[in-house]
Simulated scan of single mutants.
Amino acid sequence: MPKPAPFTPKPAIEKLPLAVRKDIRDNFESEKEDLQKQVNDLLGNECKFNFNANEIWAYNADSNSTNCGGTLKNYATGFIYCLKSFINKYGDEGKDHFNGAVTQCEISVGVNPLGDKAPTINCEVKDGVFWILFNHTSLGYNCDYIGDYMLSAIENAPRDGLSLRAKHSIDEDYDSKIDDLKEELGGMIGVPDVVLDPNWDENFKALKAKSSSNDWEQNLGRTIYSYFEGFKDQLKYQGFKDDEMLQEGLAEVFESKKIVVRVVPKTKKTYNEAIIEDGVIYLQTTPEQWWVNTSQIGEKFIDLL
């Protein structure tokens, strides 16, 4: 069976009809400055809408329609609506990541080069420009759904360090409750100044290098927390609470008072393990076994002492 022909974008309209140009003037250009100000106020950056009406309107399916300006405005207001939700969720980190990805401070609209395989609407960041992409048969549809693709577009732009998904998970699922866990664990093992090191950057790099998807990023904080919680529960089960002999035995090999979560290429146990190296307790797992059986981390830890 022959392969379908690749999608070929339509040529831009050389000259738009007068009624269409008037609609652009009345319904988009007249409001463009205010629309851009709304974006700039949200991002703290000077961004602009750069919509090529001649290219975009080539995909208008209704030959009687002159509503090009209204269509362009819908893309702009849809983008603003979704950007507000994005920043409400991700705050200043969201602004930093957006501005760091969209380096040209420009928002454009264009046809999706995937042709028939393209969703009704999608987004991508290319060469520092935020592109709103429409299916060639669906001009003007689903403008309020830009937000479904905004995060992925920003995250797919090259950037060092933790992703926005990961940072949000840390804020929501780790920072808010780790102090209580640390206090409980420290009291139980007789080390009130115990240090819990999530090892964010190194673990993120190790997982990123081996993972075929980024689903794990949105649970990074919760997952790291679950390793510390699982270890605490294991020590409680093994009788460390209020047992001076066990606490003293631990203190002899736990000079650093530091517990670190670490992703490694291979572990001796199937899912995860706790080991002691140079006075540090490492809670180890592999990318393949990430977030698997975290409640078992530190099983039989007493045998290491």
Rank of each mutant, 00 (worst) to 15 (best):
M1T: 09
P4S: 10
A5G: 02
T8C: 12
V20Q: 10
R25E: 12
N27G: 02
N27E: 09
Q36L: 06
Q36C: 11
K37L: 10
Q38P: 01
V39P: 08
N50P: 00
N52D: 12
I56A: 06
W57K: 07
G70F: 02
G70K: 08
T71D: 06
K73Y: 11
F79P: 03
C82M: 14
G91L: 02
G94C: 09
G94R: 04
D96S: 10
H97D: 14
F98W: 14
D116F: 10
T120R: 09
N122P: 02
C123Y: 01
C123P: 02
K126H: 09
V129A: 04
W131M: 12
L133D: 03
N135A: 08
L139T: 00
A153R: 02
E155A: 10
K177Y: 05
G186W: 01
I189Q: 00
D193I: 04
V194K: 06
V195F: 14
V195C: 12
D201S: 12
K205D: 11
Q218E: 13
T223I: 10
I224P: 00
S226L: 04
F228C: 00
G230R: 05
K232E: 03
K236W: 03
Q247M: 01
L250K: 03
E255D: 14
E255H: 13
V261A: 03
V263E: 07
T270I: 06
E273I: 04
E273W: 02
E273A: 05
G279W: 04
G279M: 08
Q289P: 01
Q289A: 11
V292P: 03
V292F: 15
S295G: 11
Q296N: 15
